[in-house]
Amino acid sequence: MRVPRALIVAGFRRYATYRQATVAGAFTNVVFGFLRCYILLSIAESAGGSMVGYDPTQLVSYVWLGQGMLAVVNSWTMLDLAERVRSGEVVSDLLRPIDPLWTYMWTDLGRGGFAMLTRFLTPLVVGELCFGVYVPDNPLTYPLFLLSVVAALLVGFACRYLIGLCAFWLLDVRGVSMMWVFFSGAASGLYFPLAVLPDWLATALWAVTPFPSLMQASLDIAVERGGLAHGLPAFGAQVVWVVLSLLACRWVQTRAVRRLVVQGG
């Protein structure tokens, strides 16, 4: 446990030094929070008070928690793995006694911990002050939400790691990253709750893609949509995706390393 702890602490401290970037990022999340919050509230009003089963306070929570989670899951910022593969520096990662997958994962958890304390809380406080957020009835919701955020972070991490691994084949992963940014924004529930989509599409997203596990699952748990009867299976799905995506990382990495050629010079 010593190594993971050291790596988590290192990740936390690394991001704790980026204070200005943290302030700038939180500011942007807050502006987007206002935007999305007003938009969803206006739709709820014109649709007769609620929107696909979310009442106005639930929508407020949905938006502001989503803005906070965005920085914790951080699915839009790619790991430096691809760059290290391209430059050949990845060799020094592979030579270490710890698999780079775990090094990156623990560090990312540390980063997420710092984001939780800063980027997550800021939008939540603004949302509460300016609109009033939903307060969960069931005390179990709080720990379940926290676990669910950790799961979301891990799924997001594993997917970004997979994209980084693509560099072993493609060298330039910008195209793949762009596709990822596209889907992880639209299909994760960041722009709108997935329930507004046609049923078949929403069901398909939940059933066969990891995207709802990045955000929608945690947000539904937090606003107690469908209570624990919906929340527990949603969390279960996240756990399944954590396991599947990390296994995929292992498998792809084994194959990638086999074809690694380090340029001399």
Binding site: I39, L40, I43, A44, G48, F192, V196, L197
Partner: peptide, 12 residues
């Protein structure tokens, strides 16, 4: 996205 949201309340 605009039209998905449009479809919810039939107007924006």
């Amino acid at each position: 996205t605009v039209f998905v949201l449009f479809s919810v309340g039939g107007g924006l």
